[in-house]
């Protein structure tokens, strides 16, 4: 080991580690600490109450409603997003068939790639505001304005209990698809064309190509995408906060844990209780990520 190597490494690492320690680790630890208190945020003194917050949480209907919404998001958001992204990525990269010995995308695929990625460039709050206009219940809304032209009644996207969560989920998916198209495209780009050629020579159709060649070789990328999207499904705070009726409504039909944490902290000044929710959310996300990585573990195909 060369002399002076450790000071060199430490010199590089100390600043990021200190920043991470202060703003991430310490903040987490403090949330854990506060979750055992009944702190209301306005006094330097805190009182410890053991697991009371967690017991209360267990009997809180709103909390379970939020968990339910996360479960729905967890199932449908990754499924639809990955499905759409895979479909588009396949069309953009392989869907054009073989030309001059090379697989290509459908006509205009370069243009589409930019278009699909575009939503990713918009800030989430901006997306929320735009879609609040798209979904607006009167004629000024994009969709309801069109429906109005054809004389059919307004659809209350965000004001209907049964539609609200799905409407918001659609925006989440719309926003996410572009990123995963690019991610999967990169993955597909690294699959050697010879494999496709060989398969095509054996008479494989596009469908067979997709399921027998592309999908298995993309497995690692898919796994990562699933974890990312799952974690996003535990969030959804920004969209719900900006778009939903009566914040998390109508009548709690769209509420998520992030919003409930915010509400308990901000509106009810129940910092201890909000921290307890945060702790639960932390473990939920962690468990999900670990579980997904474990369950989907497969032999990776070496290229």
């Amino acid at each position: 080991m060369k002399h002076g190597r450790y000071p060199f490494i430490i010199g590089f690492l100390i600043v990021p580690v200190a920043i991470y320690g202060t703003f991430v680790v310490a903040a987490y630890l403090q949330a854990f600490q506060l979750s055992f208190t009944n702190w209301r945020g306005f006094s330097p003194d805190v009182q410890y109450i053991g697991f009371d917050n967690f017991t209360k949480l267990f009997h809180d209907n709103t909390f379970w409603k939020a968990i339910q919404h996360h479960a729905l998001l967890l199932v449908f958001m990754p499924l639809v997003t990955i499905g759409l992204a895979l479909f588009f990525a396949f069309l953009l990269n392989v869907g054009g068939g073989s030309r001059g010995g090379r697989t290509t995308g459908v006509w205009g695929s370069k243009f589409y790639r930019v278009v699909f990625f575009f939503p990713q460039l918009l800030a989430l709050a901006l997306v929320a505001v735009i879609f609040a206009r798209v979904y607006s219940p009167d004629e000024s809304g994009l969709i309801n304005g069109l429906l109005h032209q054809f004389g059919s009644g307004p659809v209350l996207f965000l004001a209907d209990k049964n539609l609200a969560l799905w409407s918001i989920m659609a925006v989440l998916i719309w926003q996410a698809v572009g990123f995963y198209v690019v991610l999967f495209s990169a993955g597909m780009g690294s699959i050697p064309t010879e494999i496709y050629e060989a398969a095509a020579l054996d008479g494989a159709t596009r469908g067979t190509l997709f399921f027998k060649v592309t999908l298995p070789l993309l497995w690692n990328t898919l796994q990562v995408a699933w974890v990312y999207l799952g974690i996003a499904a535990f969030d959804a705070f920004a969209l719900v906060n900006v778009m939903s009726v009566d914040r998390g409504g109508p009548d709690g039909a769209t509420t998520v844990l992030g919003l409930e944490i915010f509400r308990n902290m901000q509106d009810y000044a129940q910092f201890g209780y909000a921290s307890a929710m945060g702790v639960v959310l932390f473990f939920l996300t962690l468990t999900f990520a670990a579980l997904t990585l474990r369950v989907t573990r497969r032999e990776t195909v070496e290229l």
Binding site: Y135, S136, P137, D138, L156, V245, P250
Partner: peptide, 8 residues
């Protein structure tokens, strides 16, 4: 009233 106002 107008039920659409619920979303406004």
């Amino acid at each position: 009233s107008n039920k659409a106002f619920l979303g406004l």
